[in-house]
Amino acid sequence: MKERGNAGAWYRWEAWGGFLFLAVACLIVGLLKPRFLSPANLLTIAQQASPLLIAAVAQAFVVMAGEIDLSLGSAAAVISMVAVMSAKSLGTVPGILMGLLTGASLGFLNGIVVTRLRVPAFIATVGMLTYAQGIALYLGGGVPIEFPPPSFAWPGQGFLGPLPAVTVIAAMVLIFVHLVLTRTVFGRHLRATGGNRLVALLSGVHVQRVRLAAFVLSGTFTGLSAIVLASRVNSGQPYLYPSLPFEAIAALAVGGISLRGGEGTVRQILLGVLIFSAMSNALNFFAISSYVQQMITGAMTVLALLFSRWQGLPRAKEGG
């Protein structure tokens, strides 16, 4: 198996070259704009990268299973509304649990439509995008839901020692997902399913169950991401973060994960998100508008894929 080879050779260029590239790029920006490398700004980057990281993990589960989820953005909006509404009436912890539950159910719904009704994932999730957006608007009558209890602000704005709470949460998510991917049968089945569904099926993998589980996990992590985002702005927003699925896909592509499924490591997710977030932050230093950043998101997705093709990766052919 591939991951065993990689685990033995932690110093390999393929594994860490990207981080080296990131470090050099950050140094160059730091030389031009010294404040970029200040500890305060690095913490800001970590804080800003964390919700995207959790969302990228959510996207990664479905991508590794050979599917795609375009509904992350409006799912996150619904979740933020539900979480803040329940936090107001039931308290912070039940609010958070309700948010996670909402995320898991939306993921379950996506998964059922994809696996049982055999609707292609991009259609099912584009349908969900519209559907969930409608519900998010309906719940608040088109306006945000505000004033959750004060403790609701902790996941998004609080600190654990010197570190932002959201970064600690994201780090824990990464460790959890790393263990799931490398140490469990499910992780292996997930990539087998994404790599070649027929072969996985013939090898005795419960392909349908694995795909469904990927969507439910994805929904749950979308829920977590939405909760920290809602906590950061202290409200449930019907238009919380519409570009979330696209940024998550861009981050995965930049991290070097094949969007055809069957592969992916936590290291790649982290690399993609860090490059993405560091770049957004750097562009702010150069006073480049958010519109241009949006253009770069799109361009980067395609360029990253062209780059990985140009490297001539033989594995890109696998199972396609």
């Binding site: 795609i68 896909i249 861009a250 241009v292 949006q294 998101t297 894929l305």
Partner: peptide, 27 residues
């Protein structure tokens, strides 16, 4: 061209274009 010549999946290409073109329209 990205789909046919460079063989990137249509969904990914057009998602990237979705973000790019909307950003350009706003810019």
């Amino acid at each position: 061209v990205l789909v046919s010549h460079y063989r990137i999946q249509p969904v990914i290409v057009t998602i990237a274009m979705l973000t790019f073109a909307r950003g350009l329209a706003f810019e």
